[in-house]
């Protein structure tokens, strides 16, 4: 018993943190989908959300990476072993500030991964600076002056970047978040779930009750059934994503499986890519290389 305890980190998030809801939703989704270290990896960035893999109470594998770079690590893991489901936990500062280049590029690739965006409007672990999703004019607890930057809309940005599954949930709607995570994992392509979460310590504006009085379930068909529907579905999703002050839509905004995932694109060049994934390949026999370079040398042979 003692040894098993040693395998799980003590959870040091603040009481009331939205991350608890996200953690629970992740645990439930993984359990229901029978995901563990054998078939999945939890990747995370830096900040409070970065600790998520360490706090999951089940048999998982976790890779807690660098600030802004979770998607880059995740891409390497996924493409070298596409048998593994990759779930990324990263904050709004991590994803949309320091890691923005990767956020956009992940959409362009549309690899089969799930990004859970812990969106609380502040940089918690560094004592509450404004994050890229905090509204202009808002002065959260530790800001000396109101925020003078406009916010990024992660839903809209994800859609125009090429994410093919885009949803929003509220962290304390554990069941709704869990269901969205499951749908995202089942989806073939790059998925974003923008998870609104209170930061009870530093965000004294977007608190639990503030969200609770605004969130509602979307009533749209987000699925692109054919390419001709794409523009209208994108338009509806983006318009809905800008609702904020009075009402905040949650649920799946957009889903498009008509776009080939990156793994399929690689398969176009490497036909047995998914049958013989890089991580499973035998590269030596008795310490001797088994890779032939003869064909390449033939082309370089001049005489």
């Amino acid at each position: 018993m003692q040894e098993i305890d040693a395998q799980t980190e003590f959870n040091d998030w603040c009481p009331g943190c939205g991350d608890y809801g996200i953690l629970r939703a992740v645990e439930l989704a993984m359990k229901e989908m029978k995901l563990d270290y054998k078939n999945s990896v939890l990747v995370s960035g830096i900040g409070c959300s970065g600790k998520t893999p360490h706090f999951v109470q089940d048999d998982v594998a976790g890779v807690h990476t660098l600030h802004g770079r979770a998607l880059a690590f995740a891409t390497g893991i996924r493409l070298s072993n596409p048998n593994l489901k990759v779930i990324i936990n990263a904050g709004d500062g991590d994803t949309l500030g320091i890691g923005m280049g990767h956020f956009v590029s992940a959409g362009r690739r549309n690899a089969n991964m799930v990004l859970l965006l812990h969106d609380n409007g502040v940089y918690g672990l560094t004592k509450g600076q404004a994050s890229p999703t905090l509204r202009r004019g808002e002065k959260t607890k530790s800001l000396p002056e109101p925020n003078i930057n406009d916010p990024i809309n992660p839903i809209a940005l994800a859609i125009i970047s090429g994410y093919t599954f885009v949803a929003r949930t509220f962290a304390y709607d554990v069941v709704g978040t869990k269901e969205a995570i499951k749908a995202a994992i089942e989806h073939k392509g790059m998925a974003l779930i923008d998870i609104l979460q209170p930061c009870p310590t530093y965000n004294d504006i977007n608190v639990n009750d503030w969200y609770k009085s605004r969130v509602y379930k979307l009533d749209i068909d987000p699925v692109v059934h054919s390419e001709s529907e794409r523009n209208s579905k994108i338009t509806t999703a983006i318009i809905k994503s800008f609702e904020w002050e009075e009402r905040i839509a949650t649920g799946i905004f957009y889903q498009d499986e008509t776009v080939p995932p990156y793994e399929e694109r690689i398969k176009g060049d490497i036909t047995n890519y998914l049958d013989y994934v890089p991580a499973d390949q035998t590269i030596e026999n008795n310490r001797k290389s088994v890779t032939s370079i003869d064909a390449m040398l033939d082309k370089l042979t001049v005489v």
């Binding site: 890779v63 990476t65 998607l71 891409t75 390497g76 893991i77 070298s80 072993n81 590029s105």
Partner: peptide
């Protein structure tokens, strides 16, 4: 990749899978 930050970190990610 989109930059060298992604290049080194994607390579590290791949290495963790035994590739």
């Amino acid at each position: 990749t989109e930059d060298e930050l992604a290049a080194i970190n994607a390579a590290s990610g791949a290495a963790l899978t035994g590739t």
